[in-house]
Structures are given as structure tokens and as C-alpha cells.
Design a protein around this nucleic acid. Structure first.
Lengths: 228, 228
DNA sequence: GTCTATATGGGGATAGAC
DNA sequence: GTCTATCCCCATATAGAC
């Protein structure tokens, strides 16, 4: 009688619990009981716990990336022949994710866990759907930054994605390290700070560190021996 | 016979397996058999699996942070009254971690997993040991960048730590997205790219996005389509 | 599609001999 | 400190009634 509704409720509960308790500490029992469904429902609807996780990811990642590309296209149209400012392109890449965070605070935590976990199966979903976004934005940045070589641009896109993802790990590391001064509660403020940082990073001149400074880095564990 | 050696071998195997298979998919049995030790050894030496993970972290994080602060102090001495360049300070913060990555490629993967996992217990170890580093570097950056307010500097330190951590998730996301063009094999090249990006980000002027551009972001979590 | 009952295995942890 | 044997919980997954 609940029909497809049950499926949605399971997805919602799974997303929330995966984010709050972690992928590894969330059991199918936790999920179904939170969703008011029964244990067997997960295997019925999603085949397995892993199948459930995959759908938790897919249902957000697909519209998220579609929106990024839509905003990118919009900007291209709006600016016509003129170069699109780096900030505008960055906004198209970052703002949809940040908006999603404020609407669905749990999804980015799940994302972070999957990206950090060595298991490749679920990660491939991200890679698959992000590939098109990556290429599209790489082209856009390359047009706005003709003096930066393409390889460098790709590195920098990766850096800035890291800055974004890390900002919303579930631990509120920044709030705690700053003694409560920095707060991640304001959507516009956050996106502006991120854009400011990343735009400057994208435009940066290349750099070679003077190697006299590097000498003598030594990290000795109390007992860490080199024994490849 | 084996005395303390066993403990070290367990730590080494644990670090490697946690990185390769993930925290959740690595059992104590996996670890002990890889280390040539016996199941009970883990509980004897570390009380529990969690205790083992804690020591895996501690033995690297303590000397790592000590080295960061040592390099920071060195730079201060070297430059005397003159302001230390942002790049030099960044180098003190990032290079020890990157060097550690090239010596012990598994540790950063473990770090990433802990930072992304909602479980707070182990994460607190990072927070505890990083607090001093964070304050020290915040002061240093503030001196070199008197026009940037302190709160902004803290945000940016967090962003740049994210850029660094994300670069070495175990999936080699960047190598795959770039079709093999970007490779994380060269230590100096990587640190230079990171420093270039982060130094520019730290120096960036504040920014406010023109809100006409923001209008109409829509991410509708449309029902998921099964594609199998 | 929903739910009960159960199969099946793996996991962390411990007692106690050596 | 090392190792064997074992306890017992809890996980995922399935069979089959309704």
C-alpha cells in the first residue's frame, strides 16, 4: 500500500544515517527502523546495502551535475563572445553543491566518506558523472585564463574541489579550530569566501620554491624505520 | 623473542591495510595475519581495534606536526624582523605532509578516512594535535598578510588543508579525470603547484558575488532512474 | 509489496595454557 | 609476550507466508 513511498523513505533515512553515524556503523536495521520499513525491504528494493548506497548517491549527483552544466551554459550565453569571468564559472561549479548542502546537509558528508574510502566501486559513480563536468569546466577556465596551461588548470580544479569538500566534513573542524569564530551557517558568505580563494588560486602565476629553504625536513616517528 | 617488534609490525600492517582496504573492511584478523602475529596480540598491545587505529595515527601525527612548527620557527629566525613570505610559511605547513606521503603513502589515505568519518573519537586526535599548528600558522600568515582579517585567514587555512588532503585520496581521482595527464609522482612539482595555488588564495581580495547571477539555481532531486 | 523467521557467516574480544 | 580455542554478538541476506 505504501508503494514507492517506502523506497523514498528508505533513501532518506539511509542518507541521514550514513551521514550521522558513518557508512560502516550504519546497519540495514538502523535504516529500516528509522524509515518505518522492514528489514527485507532493502533487499527487495535495492538488492543489497551497497545497492542502496549507490542509489543514495545517484539521486543527488545526477541533478547536481546537470545544474552545474546548465549554469555554465547560461553564463556562456550571457557573456557571448566575451570571456566569462573566472568567478562566474566558479559559481556555476560550486554554488549548486553548496546550495544542496544547505538543503540536504547530509549528502556532502556521504560524499566525503565515499571519496576517502579506498573502495572503488561506489567512487566510480562520482567519477562517471563528474567526468563531463570536469571537461566542461576545464574548457571554460582555459578560455578565461589563456596564460595558464591546461594541465595546471586541471590540478587547480582538483585543489578547489578538495577545498570545498573538506569544508563540510561532519566534524565542523573549522568551527572548532577557530574557537567558534568561523561559522558555516551562511550560504552566501561561504560561497563568496570560497570563490575569492579559488579564483585567486586559479589565476596564480606558476611558482618554484627556492630549494635552499627545503633542506632538512625530517619527520622521524618515535620508531618509524624506513623499511620499504 | 619478538618483543616490541611485533607491535611495530602490527602498526605497519594496520596502516597499510587500513589505507588499501579501508577502515571498515579491514578486520583485526587481516592485520595480524599480514603482520605474522596472532589475533590476541592486538588486544594485548592496543586494547582494541580502535586503540590500534589511534596509535597508527599518533605515531605519525606527532612528529609531523613537530616538524611543521620547527620549520615555521626556522623561517622566523631566518627572516628576523622582515615578514616571512607566504610561500615559505606554506612550505613549512605543507611540505612535511607531502614528504611523509612520498615516504609512507598509506598514511594520508588513513587520514582522509578519519577526517571524513562522522565518528568523532579518532578525529579528536587530529584536532588535538593540530590545534597548536593551526594557531601558529594563523599568526604567521596574519603577520605576512596584514590586510586580510584573521577570520578570513582561518577559513583559508581550512580551504588549503582540504586541497592538500583531497589530492591524495586513494582513488587518484585527478589522474583519472585528466586522462593520465596529471601525475602525482613528483614531490617537488606537486608541492610547487600546491604552494602556487594556496599562496594566491591566501592573498586574495575579498569578493562579493553579483547576485543577479545566482538566481534560479534549482536542484530537484528527481526520482532516481535505475540504470543497470 | 509487506513482513516474520531464520540462515549463515564474520567480527571483536577474552580466558588461560605455555 | 605469544598463541589456541572459544564465546557471543550482530551483520547481511533469503525463504516463504500473507
Amino acid at each position: 500500500m505504501q508503494e514507492a513511498k517506502t523506497k523514498e523513505r528508505i533513501l532518506d533515512s539511509a542518507e541521514e544515517l550514513f551521514a550521522k553515524k558513518g557508512l560502516k556503523h550504519t546497519s540495514v536495521r538502523d535504516i529500516t527502523s528509522a524509515a518505518g520499513a522492514h528489514l527485507a525491504a532493502v533487499n527487495y528494493h535495492f538488492k543489497s546495502k551497497d545497492g542502496l548506497l549507490r542509489e543514495v548517491v545517484q539521486r543527488r549527483i545526477v541533478p547536481l551535475n546537470r545544474e552545474r552544466l546548465r549554469l555554465l551554459e547560461d553564463a556562456a550565453k550571457r557573456y557571448g563572445k566575451k570571456a566569462v569571468p573566472v568567478e562566474t564559472t566558479l559559481h556555476a561549479l560550486l554554488a549548486p553543491a553548496i546550495k544542496l548542502y544547505f538543503e540536504r546537509p547530509h549528502f556532502l558528508s556521504v560524499t566525503g566518506q565515499i571519496v576517502s574510502d579506498p573502495d572503488d566501486e561506489v567512487y566510480k559513480i562520482f567519477l562517471f558523472h563528474f567526468q563531463e563536468v570536469f571537461s566542461g569546466f576545464k574548457e571554460a577556465f582555459a578560455e578565461s585564463l589563456p596564460h595558464i596551461e591546461e594541465e595546471e588548470i586541471m590540478w587547480r580544479i582538483h585543489f578547489l574541489m578538495g577545498a570545498m569538500i573538506h569544508t563540510w566534513t561532519s566534524h565542523s573542524g573549522l568551527e572548532r579550530l577557530s574557537g567558534g569564530v568561523c561559522r558555516l551557517s551562511d550560504e552566501e558568505e561561504t560561497i563568496n569566501r570560497l570563490i575569492a580563494f579559488c579564483a585567486a588560486g586559479l589565476r596564480a602565476p606558476e611558482y618554484n620554491y627556492p630549494h635552499e629553504d627545503i633542506k632538512g625536513i625530517q619527520i622521524k616517528g618515535k620508531s618509524s624505520k624506513k623499511k620499504d
